[in-house]
Design a protein around this nucleic acid. Structure first.
Lengths: 225, 225
DNA sequence: CAAATTCTAAAGTAAATCTAAAGTTGGTTG
DNA sequence: CAACCAACTTTAGATTTACTTTAGAATTTG
């Protein structure tokens, strides 16, 4: 899961990023309006953490822009004061949750989980596709009710496939979602092959179907047919 | 075990905290409604000691909030007078016990123990997982009926694992539960490794099984399988 | 201040991730 | 349709990251 953190206090920005990275999220950082705007225009995120007060603009405007562009990201507002006005404005404009600084990182984490559940997982903790079940709390995967032991990257990749079933995903899209932007974009993405192969092997080992169809020259499609 | 003490008389607050810290509880303090509310929204506690009369609000409202959020903390009300009304209201709203000021600290301690026993330990003083027995009164641990000598941190950590068996606990979650909030969140939690290693070594020394499974990149899970 | 506990740091080990290269398949073109 | 190239698959192993273990420094406790 990929998160954009928009926050002008650099210390807090780094603290949040370190914590969420340890919790196995892919994090990208924006310390002002301008950078946040650029990133939002270019990349897709699952969650955006949005500080309202930025040195060069207002987070509310970013929120409006996100909603206008109809982006699928869940939005959690970070606000310095428990200002009821800001809170109401934010939630009215379509933010999914609101957290008042200072906050405990574990609290942020559980709110992120709640928003992800609501937004991307149809309200459940388990994302299922036929005989494959992904438990997003214990971060485990079962095939025909037998657990397969997967690494973080394998887990992320399989979840990304299932959440984007029936859509062709290019290697570039996969790389963009599973790695943050300090990876060299000009590189070839051959390392994806290795992870893909591991997932396919592990699913087959429990008698699962290989739903990951190779679309030659295009990418991959996770699908029944 | 982690305790939140909500009490506006600073002297009493400090006195209780000092005493309970010596009794090996992790204590956090809130001297008004606002702070207590913030802490309750953010952290998990095993016990909350709740003064009803606060300068900026009513403890009963906090109690309602705790019950509404369905928090697992046991609640003991501290009340200045033996006001029967407050007592009945508190217990009706789901408080677990009630103690009237002034009280003996040892009396408070035994009430805390009783609530913990009822709430977390299924009514018993001994929490058991196969060949491992934790006696929560004498705070001793037996493996195959032989005592292992553990330090406070080791005792707390093992009890936390057993009470959260079959759940993956991240290093962050462990740190949050076993240390109070003056620990620097940005830090790495490498010191956990040392305590963990000590627990594993001591359990093995009496022929016990190492139920603490390492989930690489995720955390630890105390489990049979 | 002596002893025990807790934390820090560093060396050792294991696992995950990435790289590279050999093998295979599919599509294109003469 | 045969030959070739590009894209994908698979495997081995190099690199990086995460965890384990140990020793000892710093802190707390009696």
């Amino acid at each position: 899961m990929k998160i954009l953190i928009v926050e002008d206090e650099t210390d807090l920005l780094i603290t949040i990023s370190n914590y969420l990275t340890k919790e196995n999220y892919i994090c990208e950082l924006a310390e002002n309006f301008q950078k946040a705007f650029e990133k939002i225009s270019i990349y897709e995120y699952d969650i955006i953490l949005l500080d309202i007060t930025l040195p060069d603009g207002n987070g509310i405007d970013l929120l409006k822009y996100i909603k206008k562009k109809n982006l699928k990201a869940g939005i959690i507002i970070l606000s310095a004061k428990s200002s009821l006005d800001d809170k109401i404005t934010g939630l009215d404009l379509g933010a999914d949750d609101y957290i008042t600084k200072p906050f405990q990182l574990s609290e942020l984490n559980s709110r992120i989980n709640a928003v992800l559940r609501k937004h991307h997982f149809d309200g459940s903790n388990v994302v299922q596709f036929n005989e494959i079940k992904v438990d997003t709390v214990s971060k485990t995967i079962k095939v025909n009710d037998e657990e397969i032991i997967v690494t973080k990257k394998e887990y992320d990749m399989l979840l990304y496939f299932i959440l984007n079933k029936n859509r062709v995903l290019t290697k570039e899209a996969i790389a963009e979602h599973l790695w943050n932007d300090n990876i060299d974009q000009a590189d070839n993405f051959d390392f994806i092959y290795t992870h893909l192969n591991n997932i396919r092997r592990k699913i087959k080992s429990k008698g699962g179907t290989d739903y990951i169809k190779t679309i030659y020259g295009m990418g991959y499609k996770f699908s029944d047919r």
